[in-house]
């Protein structure tokens, strides 16, 4: 079983991203489960979402405490919350950032991948310039780094599940996939 935690802010699409990944994993012939932090979500506030991936049906119904990988949709969260809490040694941290991985100030036995999801989202007119929706771009970086989901599956899932602009969202994921910087 692979477990993933996503950190974003209300309005960036963290929960939708976890659901798109779950749908793509199903297309890959595997089992998935996606869920938000159980509570009340507010625009701009920190939001957490979770994803489980397995080769068999998933009976686990509790919070993820020790994720294998972390996805960070908003780099301003780094100073605010402990984003690496419980992260397993050797896990990937995928961050929305224009910096290269070696410039990211996170200490620990982790691997870092970066992509400028904000720029990609603005380029494809996803959300507004002030509040771009970066979820599909960061998904592209996640699968590039972890190889846990097939590229075609995720592009298809994004097209099916995007509330708006399905083609642009898929293009954003592909562009992020091609431009992810790996440590």
């Amino acid at each position: 079983m692979i477990e993933v935690r996503l950190h974003g802010r209300g309005g960036q699409g963290s929960v939708v991203a976890s659901k798109m990944l779950a749908s793509a994993i199903l297309k890959d012939g595997k089992w998935a489960q996606a869920f938000p932090e159980f509570g009340v979500e507010r625009r701009g506030q920190p939001v957490t979402a979770f994803l489980r991936i397995d080769t068999k049906p998933i009976g686990a119904h509790y919070r993820i405490y020790k994720p294998d990988h972390i996805i960070i949709l908003d780099p301003t969260l780094l100073g605010q919350i402990n984003v690496t809490e419980g992260l397993k040694d050797g896990g990937w941290i995928i961050i929305n950032s224009s910096k290269s991985p070696d410039k990211i100030d996170i200490k620990g036995n982790f691997k870092i991948a970066t992509v400028d999801a904000t720029e990609i989202a603005i380029k494809h007119r996803l959300g507004s310039k002030a509040a771009p929706i970066v979820n599909t771009a960061i998904i592209g970086a996640f699968i590039k780094a972890t190889q846990t989901v097939g590229l075609n599956s995720i592009l298809q899932a994004i097209k099916e599940e995007s509330p708006a602009k399905p083609e642009e969202n898929a293009m954003a994921a592909k562009e992020a996939y091609d431009n992810t910087m790996l440590e």
Binding site: K19, A22, L26, W31, Q33, F35, P36, F38
Partner: peptide, 12 residues
Amino acid sequence: LDAFYLSHTYEP
């Protein structure tokens, strides 16, 4: 069904 553990959890 359980709130959140099923109601807001996405499964195949």
